[in-house]
Computed example of a mutant assay.
Amino acid sequence: MLITVSGPAGSGKSTAAAALAETLGYDHVSGGDIFRSLADERGVSLVEFNQLAEDDDQIDRDLDRRLRDIARDRDDVVLESRLAGWMAGEYADVRIWLDAPLDVRAARIADREEKPAEAAREETEARATSEAGRYHEYYNIDIDDRTIYDLALNTARLGPEGVVETLLAFVEAYDPALDEGKAPVEHVRYEF
């Protein structure tokens, strides 16, 4: 089974995806880890790397191609990134979107990165705006469109264990037989 976990920065997607994968005995692949390692290789911050990506579409396209290849070629994977649900296309069995209000997400990021909450908020907003523009420009994706997701969950009032318990219950209740005879979710082929 291929499960995608998507959501904005600070939504808890990385923590939840890793824990869900561990619980299920699946591999966990994080687009954020790939993106961060690419930024580190260039010696720039995530904000700076996002700005570079605005002028160099190959950065995003390379990352997205890797996500698509993993979705196509592997099974028993929790694939986690902002666009995992979109990039996995028809290969995804279950698509999950995690979110929380901006203030909650910024506080989580500030705590994790040991920075002031206001700085985290500003960076998070700038990053989201940058990414949303690129997703639309490259693939005509509206990142705010939740219609492709099987589950959208606000993580603001759940601890990590509660999020994972909720996701696990949903995944365990998944019944692929219910998909038979139904029109598939429409997916767009993306050019990389």
Rank of each mutant, 00 (worst) to 15 (best):
I59H: 08
S11M: 02
E54F: 05
G43H: 05
D57M: 07
Y26W: 09
D33T: 09
L20K: 08
A17H: 05
S14A: 04
P8D: 03
S37T: 12
V29R: 03
D56M: 11
L38M: 14
A39W: 09
G43I: 02
E48F: 11
V44K: 04
G31I: 05
R42S: 02
E48P: 04
A53M: 11
E54V: 09
I59Q: 07
T23H: 14
A19E: 08
A16M: 08
A18L: 13
S6M: 06
A9C: 03
Y26I: 01
I34V: 14
T23K: 15
S45Q: 08
N50P: 11
G12T: 01
A16E: 06
A17Y: 06
I59L: 14
E22V: 01
L20G: 05
A21D: 06
H28V: 06
G43F: 06
P8C: 03
D57G: 12
Q51D: 15
L24Q: 02
S37H: 12
A18S: 14
Q51R: 15
Q58P: 01
F49G: 02
I34Q: 13
S14L: 02
F35K: 12
E48I: 05
D27K: 12
A18K: 14
K13M: 09
R42L: 02
G7W: 04
G12Q: 00
Q51Y: 12
D57R: 09
E54A: 15
A9R: 00
L52G: 05
K13F: 08
A16L: 07
L46F: 13
S30K: 03
R42Y: 00
S30P: 04
Q58S: 15
S37Y: 10
E41D: 10
F49C: 10
I59A: 07
D56H: 15
I34D: 13
I59T: 07
G25L: 09
N50D: 15
L20F: 08
T23L: 11
G10V: 01
V44E: 09
L24S: 05
L52R: 12
L52I: 11
G43L: 04
F49S: 03
N50W: 11
G7R: 01
G32L: 04
H28L: 10
A18V: 10
G25H: 06
A53V: 08
A39S: 10
V47F: 12
R42F: 00
G7S: 04
Y26K: 06
Q51P: 11
